[in-house]
Simulated assay, not measured.
Amino acid sequence: MKALSKGYNIVGLSQGNLIGRGVVEFCDGGPPVKNFISLGGPHAGTASVPLCGSGIFCILADDLIKSEIYSDYVQAHLAPSGYLKFPNDIPHYLEKCRFLPKLNNEIPEKRNTTYKERFSSLHNLVLIMSENDKVLIPKETSWFGYYPDGAFKPIVPVRQTKLYTEDWIGLKALDEAGRVHFVNVSGGHLGISKSDLKRIIVPFLVDEASVKSIVMPGCLDFHAQSHKITIGNK
């Protein structure tokens, strides 16, 4: 990828943030990622099936999916199952969930220092949380905050989580170096005004003219054009 050889930025939207982090942590020999801007990312997981609703069908579907969420079939066929984390079923989550436990280096006997080294090499990590986000449960997952193991309350702030204090992925190192930016905006999931976009996001994309940007909003399709890659929803 010669066009990205000098490095590039990632802008992640919702679950696209986890794909972007996977690129940073898992890919060998790729060009460096400079700035990672995350809008509404379920970084610590989510405790509810996303994008359904509160109707009776959604309630029934939610209950059905929850009962089988860590089965091999659901893990292989439902993308959000890879980052659903029910605090009252942590042992099952760590054993059967195929994606997030690896991404967050949560499994003690399988922790990979390379993931930590790669993630902590970012120049800037911008974590944007929407104040009225009703899709991510809890919304603080956008900042790596989450529920304690075994309970749905209280919400544990990011700097009190084990992921941070034991620095499983290098988040603490980044933060102590002044390279993590926690941003709170008004609005719902992925809601951000043009003025906030220009004020918060654009400065991290224009600092270096030679650095390209990659937008990761969805999860399925890759389209490459003029050195910009968009992952879109179907």
Score class of each variant (00 low, 15 high):
159 R>A: 11
138 P>N: 08
170 G>D: 04
99 F>V: 09
161 T>V: 06
35 N>E: 13
102 K>I: 15
169 I>T: 15
39 L>Y: 00
159 R>F: 14
87 P>V: 06
114 T>Y: 04
92 H>G: 13
165 T>C: 08
71 S>M: 05
66 K>Q: 14
86 F>L: 15
88 N>Y: 01
137 I>F: 11
74 V>P: 02
106 E>W: 02
143 W>I: 10
122 L>N: 01
87 P>F: 06
166 E>D: 15
60 L>D: 01
94 L>C: 10
125 L>N: 06
102 K>P: 00
64 L>E: 08
157 P>G: 06
50 P>D: 11
50 P>H: 07
115 Y>E: 12
171 L>P: 11
151 A>Q: 13
148 P>V: 13
75 Q>E: 12
87 P>T: 04
101 P>I: 03
157 P>W: 02
78 L>W: 07
127 L>Q: 03
169 I>E: 09
150 G>D: 12
151 A>P: 06
56 I>H: 02
162 K>L: 13
123 H>C: 07
121 S>V: 00
45 G>W: 04
161 T>P: 09
104 N>K: 00
149 D>N: 14
147 Y>L: 08
49 V>E: 05
83 Y>T: 07
150 G>R: 02
113 T>F: 05
44 A>E: 08
160 Q>W: 01
83 Y>Q: 03
52 C>S: 11
47 A>Y: 03
138 P>C: 11
67 S>T: 07
164 Y>K: 01
51 L>S: 14
75 Q>C: 10
59 I>H: 12
121 S>M: 02
115 Y>N: 13
117 E>S: 13
48 S>V: 10
70 Y>H: 06
121 S>E: 04
168 W>P: 00
76 A>N: 15
124 N>A: 12
89 D>Y: 00
123 H>A: 10
143 W>S: 09
135 V>P: 04
155 I>K: 12
166 E>T: 05
63 D>P: 00
67 S>P: 00
73 Y>P: 00
171 L>Y: 07
123 H>L: 07
157 P>I: 08
146 Y>K: 12
54 S>K: 13
138 P>M: 09
95 E>F: 02
64 L>Y: 11
51 L>M: 15
121 S>W: 00
45 G>R: 07
162 K>F: 02
126 V>T: 09
152 F>V: 04
150 G>A: 10
41 G>S: 09
52 C>G: 09
129 M>A: 11
161 T>G: 10
159 R>V: 14
99 F>Y: 15
171 L>M: 13
55 G>H: 06
90 I>Y: 13
77 H>W: 09
63 D>H: 04
124 N>D: 13
40 G>T: 05
76 A>E: 15
157 P>F: 01
169 I>D: 13
69 I>K: 11
53 G>K: 10
153 K>S: 15
151 A>T: 02
76 A>W: 01
121 S>H: 06
112 N>C: 14
158 V>E: 01
134 K>V: 12
160 Q>K: 14
159 R>Y: 11
142 S>V: 03
103 L>A: 07
126 V>L: 08
45 G>A: 11
91 P>T: 05
43 H>V: 01
58 C>N: 14
130 S>L: 03
97 C>P: 08
